[in-house]
Amino acid sequence: MKKSIYLFALVLMTSAFSFAQGTPKIGISGGLLNSNVDFDFTLSSLTATNNTGFYIGLAADIPATDKFHLQPELLYGSAGDLGFVMLPVMAKFYVAGPFHLQAGPQFSFSTTLDDIKNKVGAAIELIDDDYNGSIEDTLKTVGVDFGFGAGFDATDQLTVQARYSFEMTNRYDGPGSGLLTLRAQQFTVGLVYFF
C-alpha cells in the first residue's frame, strides 16, 4: 500500500511539473501543528489525544495558470507522542492578488502511536476480552485525509499559510471494527520559503 501511494505521488508530481505553465519553485515548509485524534466507541466519544507540536519538510509550487497552482509537500510532523509523515497535494486558487485558497487530499503515515495504543487496548478489552492479537495489528498506519485552508504570498519567495485536515479513513481495524472509529484532525499554521 505504501509503495502504491509513493508511486502515485511521484507520478502526480512528475505530471504536474511537465504541464506547468510557469516556472515551478521548490522550497522548505514548517510551522506549528495541532493534532487531535478522536476515538468514537458506539454511543460515546472521547479525544484520544490532543497535542501541539511542529512540522517541517519540502514543498513545491507548480503553476498551471495564473490563478491555479498545485502545491505538493512532503512533511514530517511531531505532536506529543505522535509522529507522522504527511504528503498533502493542495490545489491553490488565487482569489484576490496574492491571497489564495487551498484544498486537496493528504496521505498520512503514522510513525509512532504510543499514546493511542493504550486507549485502543482498553476498548478492545470491552469489545472482546478474549482477543489475543497485537494492538499494533488493529491500527492502520496509513490514512487518507482531506485538507483545506488559505494562504498569502508575502513575497515571491515567502508564503504564509494555514490549513485544516480531517481523516476520511478509519485507523482502527480490529475486533468490533463497526463499533469503534479512530480518526485524526490536524491544524497547521506556517511558512513556506521558496528558493
Rank of each mutant, 00 (worst) to 15 (best):
D38T: 13
K119R: 11
G121C: 07
G104Y: 07
I28R: 04
A150L: 11
F39P: 01
K92E: 14
D137N: 14
K25C: 13
Y164A: 08
T14P: 07
L58D: 01
K2D: 11
L113N: 04
L191A: 04
G178S: 15
D61T: 12
G27W: 00
L126P: 05
D128Q: 10
M168I: 09
T14E: 08
F107N: 12
Q21L: 13
A91I: 07
Q21P: 12
S78M: 13
F54K: 00
L70S: 03
S45T: 10
L7D: 10
I135N: 00
T52N: 08
F54G: 00
K92W: 12
G27H: 00
D115N: 03
F41K: 03
T47F: 12
E125A: 06
P72Q: 08
S29H: 00
G31H: 10
Q157C: 11
L46E: 08
K119M: 08
K117D: 05
G104C: 05
S4G: 15
S78F: 12
V160D: 06
P98D: 03
N34Y: 07
A154L: 08
K92M: 15
A16R: 04
F152T: 02
Y55M: 04
F187R: 05
S134L: 11
A96S: 07
Y131K: 03
D129S: 14
G31L: 05
I116V: 14
A162T: 08
N170A: 12
L43I: 11
G77S: 06
I56Q: 10
D38Y: 07
H69V: 14
M90Y: 09
L58Q: 03
L182V: 02
S177N: 13
K25W: 10
G27V: 00
K25T: 13
M13I: 15
Y164L: 11
S165R: 06
T14L: 11
V85W: 04
K2S: 08
A20P: 04
S18F: 13
K25Q: 14
I5A: 09
Q185F: 02
D81E: 15
G53P: 01
F194T: 08
A59N: 10
F39K: 01
D156W: 05
T169D: 06
L182Q: 01
A79L: 02
D81G: 15
A20Y: 04
T65R: 00
L32R: 09
L182W: 01
Q21S: 14
Q186A: 03
F187Y: 12
N132A: 15
K140M: 14
F107R: 06
L179H: 02
Q185H: 11
G22P: 06
F93V: 15
L158S: 02
Y94H: 04
T181M: 03
V120L: 06
D61M: 08
Y193N: 09
D153N: 13
D66A: 05
Y131R: 03
L70P: 04
S134Y: 10
D114C: 01
G104Q: 07
G143S: 13
T188M: 07
D145E: 14
S35H: 09
I56H: 08
I62Y: 00
I127D: 01
D129Y: 09
D137T: 14
V160C: 09
L82W: 11
V89G: 07
S18I: 10
Q161K: 11
V37L: 03
L32D: 05
P63A: 01
L7Q: 02
P88I: 13
L87C: 11
Q185D: 09
S4I: 15
